[in-house]
């Protein structure tokens, strides 16, 4: 009786939707290929690393953040971040110990945008192409400032 009840419940329940991971910037390369003798790369599968796993490695081991700080940046919980990170390490280990190709692709991610505010024309705008010398997108004024707290813009 209980099993029937559970099965009935489960058939109605949807799986939990996976939260998209936030990336600060896209990966700089698409992957790595091994070099050297004695590698038979043709008949070996690729190791496919997700963009979020690349980001986890970068935040943790390149930017030297703690898991807690990095998880806040990626918009996931700390345990989830640790899971992504350990999966990334396993894939890197697999690729280098078996001499496989490593491809960085896929994953449900979105890119973090930073809003800027122009003091002359009171417009808010983003900087998607990472231009260093920022001027207002509307009036070309250089009197712009970074919006620190996104909520204050109320762009919901």
């Amino acid at each position: 009786m209980f099993i029937i009840f559970v099965m009935h419940k489960c058939s109605k329940m949807r799986y939990r939707k996976r939260r998209h991971r936030k990336l600060l910037s896209p990966p700089v390369i698409k992957g790595f290929i091994p070099y050297g003798k004695n590698i038979n790369t043709e008949n070996q599968d690729l190791v496919s690393m997700l963009c979020e796993e690349y980001e986890a490695i970068k935040l943790c081991d390149y930017d030297m953040l703690t898991h807690l700080e990095a998880s806040a940046l990626m918009g996931v919980s700390r345990p989830t971040f640790t899971r992504i990170y350990s999966s990334a390490r396993q894939k890197i280990a697999l690729a280098i110990s078996e001499g496989r190709h490593l491809i960085i692709e896929g994953g449900k991610v979105y890119y973090d945008s930073q809003w800027f505010h122009c003091k002359d024309c009171d417009a808010f705008f983003t900087n998607p192409n990472d231009i260093v010398d920022i001027t207002c997108a509307l009036c070309a004024s250089s009197n712009v400032s970074k919006v620190q707290d996104e909520e204050s813009v109320s762009l919901k």
Binding site: V109, Y110, Y111, D112, S113, C121, D122, A123, F124, F125, T126, N127, P128, N129, A137, L138, V153, L155
Partner: peptide, 12 residues
Amino acid sequence: LDSLKIQMIAIK
């Protein structure tokens, strides 16, 4: 729009 690299301009 962030992933499509389209710039957003919000006017109050």
